[in-house]
């Protein structure tokens, strides 16, 4: 098997994640889909690392994880405070940007 299949898998997961972001209304699920997309990228980075024979890809994936962790913390805090004020976690309820 050619390790390039990992890349195909990564793109598939990424696309599924993106579709989830667009389709789901529950902010928590949307968030999970974002995480899925990040993980797909990480998989691609790890595969690239193997392809090029150095560890830089893994480092980037590592940083991605750190950033994702920070993002999750803040994002979930936002969701919690949103739920507190609106009793709903639907992203469509926060649609005050229109006229």
């Amino acid at each position: 098997m050619n390790p390039v299949n990992y890349l195909y898998l990564a793109s598939l997961l990424f696309t599924i994640g993106a579709a989830g972001v667009l389709i789901r209304r529950n902010a928590i699920v949307v968030f999970m889909c974002v995480e899925l997309m990040l993980n797909a990228c990480n998989l691609a980075l790890v595969a690239f690392s193997r392809m090029h024979g150095n560890l830089d890809g893994q480092i980037i994936a590592f940083f991605t994880m750190v950033v994702a962790a920070a993002e999750v913390v803040v994002g979930l805090a936002i969701i919690v405070s949103l739920f507190r004020s609106r009793h709903s976690a639907s992203v469509d309820d926060a649609s005050l940007m229109k006229l």
């Binding site: 667009l22 389709i23 992203v91 469509d92 649609s95 005050l96 229109k98």
Partner: peptide, 8 residues
């Protein structure tokens, strides 16, 4: 109308 305010 494109600006419907929905983040999605």
């Amino acid at each position: 109308k494109l600006q419907n305010g929905f983040a999605r």
